[in-house]
Amino acid sequence: MKIGFIGCGNMAKAMIGGVIKNKVVEAGDILVSAASQRTLETVSEELKVNTTLNNAEVAEKSDVLVLAVKPYLYEKVIKEIASKMDEKKLVISIAPGKTLEWLQEQFGGMLKVKLVRTMPNTPALVGEGMTGVCYNEYVTENDREAAGRIFDGFGKYEVVAESMMDAVVSVSGSSPAYVFMFIEAMADAAVADGMPRAQAYKFAAQSVLGSARMVLELGKHPGELKDMVCSPGGTTIEAVRVLEERGMRSAVIEAMKACTDKARGV
Rank of each mutant, 00 (worst) to 15 (best):
E137F: 07
K79S: 14
R149H: 06
S175M: 13
G97N: 06
G17W: 00
M165N: 03
A146V: 08
M119P: 04
V32C: 01
P96F: 03
M1I: 08
S33I: 05
M1W: 03
P196W: 13
S93G: 04
A167Q: 00
D143R: 11
K220Q: 14
S250W: 05
K112E: 15
G7S: 06
A200W: 01
V49I: 05
S231C: 09
A187K: 03
K114T: 10
V66M: 06
V32W: 02
I30V: 11
V77N: 01
A56P: 05
S231A: 14
E26C: 12
A190W: 00
Y135S: 06
V171K: 12
N22Q: 12
I6Q: 00
G9K: 04
S36H: 12
G223D: 09
G210V: 11
L125K: 07
F182M: 15
A68L: 00
G18C: 04
L31G: 00
K76H: 04
G108T: 15
P123L: 01
R241M: 05
I237G: 09
A59V: 08
I20T: 13
V49K: 00
V25M: 09
S36W: 10
A124D: 02
L65W: 00
G194T: 08
S93T: 08
F154Y: 14
M164L: 13
I94Q: 05
A146D: 06
P196E: 13
A95T: 10
T131C: 14
E105G: 15
A35I: 02
V113S: 05
R197H: 12
E105K: 15
D261Y: 05
Q106F: 08
R213C: 10
